[in-house]
Amino acid sequence: MTLKVRVIPCLDVKDGRVVKGVNFVDLADVGDPVEAAKAYDAAGADELCFLDITASHEKRGTLLDIVQRTAENCFMPLTVGGGVRTVEDIRALMLAGADKVSINTAAVRDPAVVGRAAERFGAQAIVVAIDAKGVSKPGEAPRWEIFTHGGRTPTGIDAVEFARTVANLGAGEILLTSMDRDGTKNGFDLGLTRAISDAVSVPVIASGGVGTLDHLVDGVRDGRASAVLAASIFHYGTFTIREAKEHMARAGLPMRLDREDGV
C-alpha cells in the first residue's frame, strides 16, 4: 500500500466565477465554480483547489458561499487560497468547508502567521503558496526568489530558504508555482521543484507550466513533488483527469484509479 500521487485541478475564481489567466492576465470567464467542482469530483480528481483572485476584500462573502456550496455537493478534498490574511480568514474558510487553506502574501509579509494558523488548525490544514522566479544569471548556481502580486513584485527573499522557514513554522504543505512557467505550457520548473521538495519534509505541490501529460510525470519523478496541479489542460478539455492519471500510472507512478461505480 502506498500513498498515491495527487492530481489537482485548480480553478481561479474572480467575483464568484471561474477564470483562467495566462501569466495572470487576459482573464476569460469560463463558468460556475460549483458546477466545475462537481464535474471534477465526478471525474476522480484527487483534490480541488480554488484560488480566489477577487481584488476586493469586501467581496469575500461570495467565496465563502461558493466554498460552502462546493462542500455540500462534493465529496472530495478542497483547498482554498487567495487573499487569506488572518487566522480568522482561515477559520471562516474551514467552517465553510475548506479542508486546507493556502496563505501566500500574508506569509511573505509575516511568516509568524503560519505558526499561529498551524497551532490553531494543525499543520495538515495550512498550505503556504510560494510564487517563485529564477533570478540567477547564466553560469551562476540556480537561485529563485519569491514574487508577490501575481509575479510582478520581487521580495528579495530566497524561495528555498523561505520554504524551509514556513515548513519549520508549521506549514503542512507547499504549493509551489513557477512564475516563469505559469501559463507557458512548457512544463514545470523542475530545478525549482526539486530544490524545494528536497529542502522540506512536508509535501510539495508542483504548479505552473503544464502542457502535456509527460510534464505531470516529470514533476513527480524529477521534481519529486507529491502532487501536481494544473488548470488549463483540464479546464479546456485537452486531457481528462482520468487520462492524466492513467498516463502517470503507465509511467510507474502510484495513482488512485478507483472507479466511482461501486464498492
Partner: peptide, 11 residues
Amino acid sequence: LKVPHMGWNTL
C-alpha cells in the same frame, strides 16, 4: 516520506 500523511491511501 513526507509528513503530514496527505492524500489517498488504501486500507
